[in-house]
Design a protein around this nucleic acid. Structure first.
Lengths: 344, 344
DNA sequence: AATAAGTTTGGGAGCGCTCCCATAAATATT
DNA sequence: AATATTTATGGGAGCGCTCCCAAACTTATT
C-alpha cells in the first residue's frame, strides 16, 4: 500500500478501502458498482476514501471475477492503402474510441498489415479471449469470416451491411443507396442528363449500394444507363478518382457522381486540367462530407454520412448485446443528408 | 467445459488441460510459458492436448496472477484534424499494432476527440490500470504531461523527441534535422539559391528539427537566411501546403522544401496553377516518402522516414523497459534517407 | 408488542492463472 | 552401492475482485 495518494494511481485494493472506511469489502464493491441497498451515509463515507486515495478497481481482478473485461476489439480488416488514403477509417476510429471511453470500455485494435501472414493474423484475432465483443469495420467480410466470428461465441457488430448472411448478422450502416439516389436526383433536377459515376472499391456494400442508388435515380428519370459512364476501377482512393475522371472525360458528360469525397476532389483536379469549368461544364457530387469537401474550389456538393455516429451506434449496440439488453441481430441504418454547395 | 473443440475457443482452463493430459496444473503452466525443466515427453503430450482443444490461457487470470496484462496503451494526443489529413498517424498505428501483435501484446487505443472534455480524457488515460506501458505518439507533450506520465509509475515511450526534459525521457525519433539538411544540401547542389520552406505544425520537435536542418544547410553554404521565405503557418496539412506555397510565390524562389509530402503535393498544385514548371522553374522536396510521393506529377524528391519502424522500435523498447531488460531512458534515433525523384 | 417484510452489511467461495516450495525421479559423483 | 546434485512434477497460497447467502438491523403491519 503506497502512501503517495496525492497523485497518480495507488496500489490499494478493495480490502484497503474497506478497512480505511470502516466497512467490508462487499460494501465497497457495491459502492463502486453503483448497486442499490447501500445507505447514503455509508456510500458517502466510502466515496470520500475512494476519492482521497484515487482508488480504481484492478481491471484484471474485476474481469476474472465477473468474466467481463470491459474491452471491445476493433478489427479493420482492410488492405493497408485504403486506410491511409481515405480518412473514413480515421474518423470512424475516433468515433468508436470516444464512444467506448464514455462507457468505460477500452478499445483494442486489430489492423492487418501487408507484410504479415494473413491467416496467422486472423487466428490471433478469432482466438482472442480478451475482448468481450468485437466491432468489425468495413464489410469485406464474407460468409466464412462471419462463421468464424460466430464461432468465437461473443457478440460482434459489423460496420457496413455485409453482402452475405446479412439478415442474421448485426450491423450498423449508412443509407448509402438512398444518399446516392438523392445526389443523382439532385443532378437531374439541375438539368444534367449525361451523368457519370466514379465507383468505390468493389466488394464493399457501400460501393454497391451507392452504385445502386445512381442506377435507380437514372431509371426513375427514364435516363438510359450508359455503362461507359461508370468507371470500373474506382476504389475510393485519390489516384483512382483522378484516373477515373480522365477516362470519363473521353465521353461528353455534364455531371459526375464520385462515390466518396476523396475521389471527387481528385476528379476535380482532372476536370480543371482538361480546361473545363465546375459546375458550368461539369457538375460534380461526392459522398461523405469530410473536411476536404469544404476546401475544394468550388466547395463540393456531397452526401453527408454520420461517420462518427456510425462508431457510436456500433459501440452502444455492441454493449447492449453484451449486457443482454437486446437480442441479435442488432441492425441499424443511419440517415444521410444532401449538402448542396457550389460544385453542382 | 465445452465439447465444441473443433473450432473456436473453448472455455477450458489449465486444470482441465492438466487432467486431460495426466499432469498437474503447474506443469501445463510451465509448458504454456515455455519454462525450462519440463521433460520433452511431457511437453509434447501437453502441447498435443492444448492444440487439440485450442486452449488459450485466460488473459484476465494471467494478468491478475502475474500483475502484467500484456497490454500497451497507445495515446495519440493530437488534435483531430491532423490525424485525418496526414497519413503519418495511420501508418504509425499500423506499425505499432503489428509489432505489438508479433510479441503477443494487445494495443489499446486512446484518441482525443474534439467534443470531449480534454481534462476528463486525460484523467482517464493517466488513471488507467489496464496497460502495462504506454506509447505516446507525437511529442506535443510538455513538462506537466511527462510528469503525469511518470506518476503513473509505468514505463512509457514517446514517439518524437519531446522539447522538455528530453534527456530523461524515453523516445524514438527520426533524424529529422539531418534529413532536412540532406534535402536542402541536395537542392543547393542542383544550383538552387533562393530556397523557400513550408514548415510543419509548430510545437512539434519534428517541425523544429526540420526547420533547423534547413537553416543549417543554408548557413553551411553561406546562403543568407531570408525569413520571408519561411512560411509561418504550416501545419502538415494539405491546405497549409497550398496556401503556404501561394505566399512563397510572391517572392521569386527557385526551390522549396516542404516539411512533409502532403504539403509538398498541395504546394505542387499551387506551383502548377501559377503556370510554373517543376523542376525547371521551381524544384520541390518533401519529407516522409509516403505513397503520395510516387504519384505526384512529377514524382516527388523526398526524405524517407521509417514510420513503421518507429512504431516497431517503440514497441520493442517499451517491452524491454517493461521486462527490465533495459533501464530508462530508452532513446533511439532512426536514420532517414534522401530519395531523389524528378521534382528536383 | 409481536411478527413480518424490507434494507443494509459482512464473510466465504471462487474466477483461472503464477509462483514458490516441497517432494519425487533421474543423473552425477565419490 | 550409497550419497550428493540436478531435473521434473505437484500442490498450496494468493492475485483483487464479484456474487451469493446469511446475519443484523430497520421499518411496516397486524
Amino acid at each position: 500500500m503506497s502512501t503517495d495518494f496525492d497523485n497518480g494511481i495507488t496500489d490499494l485494493n478493495l480490502e484497503d478501502i474497506a478497512r480505511l472506511s470502516g466497512v467490508s469489502r462487499s460494501t465497497v464493491s457495491r459502492v463502486v458498482n453503483h448497486h442499490p441497498n447501500v445507505s447514503e451515509i455509508t456510500r458517502r463515507k466510502v466515496l470520500e476514501i475512494i476519492e482521497r486515495y484515487n482508488f480504481k478497481p484492478h481491471p484484471a481482478a474485476r474481469a476474472l471475477a465477473s468474466q467481463r473485461a470491459n474491452i471491445i476489439g476493433i478489427l479493420i480488416p482492410h488492405i493497408v492503402s485504403d486506410l491511409f488514403t481515405d480518412p473514413f477509417f480515421s474518423i470512424l476510429l475516433q468515433g468508436i474510441t470516444t464512444a467506448a471511453n464514455s462507457v468505460n470500455y477500452s478499445p483494442v485494435l486489430w489492423l492487418t498489415s501487408a507484410n504479415v501472414d494473413e491467416s496467422a493474423f486472423y487466428d490471433q484475432v478469432f482466438n482472442d479471449r480478451l475482448a468481450d465483443g468485437m466491432i468489425v469495420a468495413s464489410a469485406t467480410v464474407n460468409a466464412s469470416f462471419i462463421k468464424r466470428l460466430d464461432q468465437r461465441g461473443k457478440p460482434y457488430i459489423i460496420i457496413g451491411r455485409p453482402f452475405t448472411a446479412y439478415e442474421q448478422s448485426s450491423y450498423v450502416d449508412s443509407e448509402n443507396e438512398q444518399g446516392a439516389r438523392m445526389m443523382v436526383e439532385h443532378l437531374i433536377k439541375q438539368g444534367r442528363r449525361r451523368i457519370g459515376m466514379i465507383t468505390g472499391r468493389s466488394g464493399l456494400t457501400s460501393s454497391h449500394d451507392r452504385l445502386q442508388g445512381y442506377i435507380s435515380a437514372l431509371q426513375h428519370a427514364d435516363i438510359p444507363i450508359d455503362m461507359r459512364l461508370i468507371t470500373p476501377a474506382g476504389d475510393y482512393s485519390d489516384a483512382s478518382g483522378y484516373t477515373g475522371m480522365k477516362l470519363l472525360l473521353h465521353h461528353r458528360i455534364d455531371a459526375v457522381f464520385a462515390a466518396n469525397d476523396v475521389m471527387a476532389a481528385s476528379a476535380m483536379r482532372a476536370i480543371k486540367e482538361a480546361g473545363l469549368r465546375i459546375p458550368e461544364d461539369i457538375a460534380i457530387g461526392g459522398f461523405d462530407d469530410m473536411g476536404i469537401a469544404r476546401t475544394t474550389e468550388p466547395p463540393l456538393t456531397t452526401v453527408q454520412q454520420p461517420i462518427t455516429q456510425l462508431g457510436d451506434y456500433a459501440v452502444r449496440g455492441l454493449i447492449d448485446l453484451l449486457e443482454g439488453r437486446v437480442e441479435p441481430p442488432f441492425q441499424q441504418m443511419l440517415p444521410v443528408k444532401l449538402i448542396v454547395r457550389q460544385s453542382t
